Structures are given as C-alpha cells and as structure tokens.
Simulated assay, not measured.
Amino acid sequence: MPRPSRKTKPTPEPTGGDDTGLHLTPPGLGLVLLEARAPWEAMAMAAVFPWLSRMPSGDGHAVLVFPGLGASDISTLALRRFLKQHGYQAHGWKQGLNLGPRDGVLDTCRERVHQLHQQHGGKISLIGWSLGGVYAREMAKEMPDLVRCVITLGTPFTGHPKATNAWRFYNLVSGQQSHDEDLLAEVRKPPPVPTTSIYSKTDGIVAWQCSINPTRHAHTENIEVHASHIGMGMNPLAMYAIADRLRQDPAHWKRFDVQGARRWFFKVAHQPEMVTQWY
C-alpha cells in the first residue's frame, strides 16, 4: 500500500463511488504506542481550563454524549462537566459499558433521545466518541426533527472496520460481524443535520481516513486536532471545537473557521481542494 500523500489537491470524494476503504490499514505500532499520551492530554485540559472558561456560554440546550467501545459514562465525565460549565444540559447514555449494538441497545438510545427532547422542550445535540459516534449519527438519521447537530470524536463511520485496531474486540463483545457491507453502506451516509467529525491523524486506534465526512454536503465538516484516540474526549483542542460547534445556530450553521490564530491549532477538510489524498 502506498504511503499517504501530504499533497492537497482536488481529489474524488473519500467515500464516493464503489470505494469501500478496503485498501486502508489500521494505525501502526508507533501510533498505538502514542496512545499512552492520553493522561498528558487530561493534564493539558486542566492547565488551559482558565482559557477555555472564557469562551462564551451556550444557550442551555441538552446534549447527549455516547461513550466509545468498551467504555461507559465514566469515560465522558470530563467532557460532560465541561459542557455543563459552559451552560449546556449534558447527559450520559445510561447503558453501562458500550459493548456494541446488542439487542435493545439502539432501542434504548432512541428512548433516551425522545426522553431528553421532551424533558428539555427542544432539539438536542448528540456527541459520540469512537463507536458512540456511530450511534449519534444513526439516531440523527432516524430522528432529524429531534436533533440539533451531531459531533463525533475519532468515529470510524466510513472506510472499513478492519481499518481500526478494535474490530476483533468489537466482534467478540458485540456478537456481531463488522463486515456487513449493506450495514456499512448505511453507516457511511451522513445525517441530514449539521454534522462535525473531529479526528486526529495520530489516532492509534482508528485510521483517520475512516473519520472523514464527504465534502459535497454543505452541512458536514471535518476538523483535525492533535490528539490520541483514548484522550480525545479530554483533549483541550477537541473541547474548544466542540464548544464552538454547539454554539452554532442550526438555521444559520457555518463550517468551522480556521482563520487567525486557529490555523496554528486546527486543520479542516471541508472543500475538495483541502481533502488529503491517501490512495
């Protein structure tokens, strides 16, 4: 397999045509070892919290956060605390460990979305970390009238599950197979609401190309941050991007702007000329 090119030029849609991402491989050992930096990301979050706390507060709408594979609401506690401190009504998914979409899991997710929508009297935002982002996207596809926006963190919604280092664990704990092509084709489709993918090219679990939204949709975007997969939900850059996206008015939604100082910390892949070629 050729090495990813760093050139930026017009390229075909990453998820278009018949490309199923089978050419992609999971992150290598070097990136896996870099996952050990997650505690440093948590410490960085604590260090820059006074700066993050100066960001404008949100409008108070409800946010439902889905954990990643093998994780529970404990893993999203720091993120939900951050959201509450910025004025949002942040909630966990309340299903214990995320062991895949086993019997009853998605039904309970649907009930949770309906419950929070009724409880708070308005559309809610959905945030999903890793596999949790797949749940968030699917809930938004099924119930777009109840969902304000979707934000995913290191979520492998395109490409192929075997381009992650977690597919064997997923098969084991979920009791399902990760190579159902019909299901994968549905998962690749973006929700009909503003949808943001936050990803890292140094992700040690998910090949970053699996987290790229197609660029032809005006309501989708991709934001690159420097983060590990395990630490993305505690990474200060990811937190900043999340808070910025949640403040967007869905009726006048605009893609993340990397002008000014932001260009030193973030990269985006919204337009065809900015999509990095990897094949």
Rank of each mutant, 00 (worst) to 15 (best):
L172Y: 10
H179T: 10
D203L: 00
S197P: 13
P161T: 00
P194H: 08
K162M: 09
P192L: 02
Y199V: 02
L183G: 10
V187C: 03
K201A: 02
S178L: 01
I198K: 03
Y170A: 14
Y199M: 09
T195W: 13
V173F: 07
V187I: 15
D180M: 05
Q176Y: 02
A207Y: 00
H160W: 05
W167Q: 08
C210P: 08
A185I: 06
Q176I: 06
L184M: 13
H179F: 08
S197F: 04
T164F: 04
S174D: 10
Q177P: 00
T164N: 04
V193M: 05
S200P: 05
Q176E: 12
P194A: 01
C210V: 05
K162N: 13
D203K: 01
N165W: 06
A166Q: 01
I212D: 03
L183T: 11
V187D: 07
Q209L: 00
V193E: 07
V187Y: 13
G159F: 11
K201Y: 00
F157V: 05
N165H: 02
T158G: 15
L184Q: 04
V187L: 15
S197H: 14
F157G: 07
T196M: 13
T202C: 06
R168K: 12
P191D: 01
N165R: 15
K189D: 12
F169I: 14
N171A: 10
V206N: 02
L183D: 10
Q209F: 00
L172S: 09
E186I: 09
D203H: 01
G159M: 03
S200N: 06
G159L: 00
H179R: 03
T202W: 07
L172P: 02
V173S: 04
E186F: 04
Q209N: 01
G159C: 04
R188Y: 06
Y170W: 15
T202S: 13
Y199Q: 10
S197L: 12
V187N: 05
P192G: 07
A185Q: 12
A163P: 07
F157C: 06
V193T: 06
T196L: 12
D182Y: 11
S174L: 09
K162R: 15
C210T: 14
D180N: 13
D182S: 09
W167P: 05
S211G: 12
Q176C: 08
N165I: 07
K189M: 15
D203R: 03
E181T: 12
L184W: 06
V187Q: 13
L172A: 15
P190D: 11
T158V: 12
P190C: 11
R188M: 12
K189W: 13
T196H: 10
F157N: 02
P161Y: 00
V173A: 08
T158S: 15
Q209V: 08
D180Q: 04
K189T: 14
S200E: 05
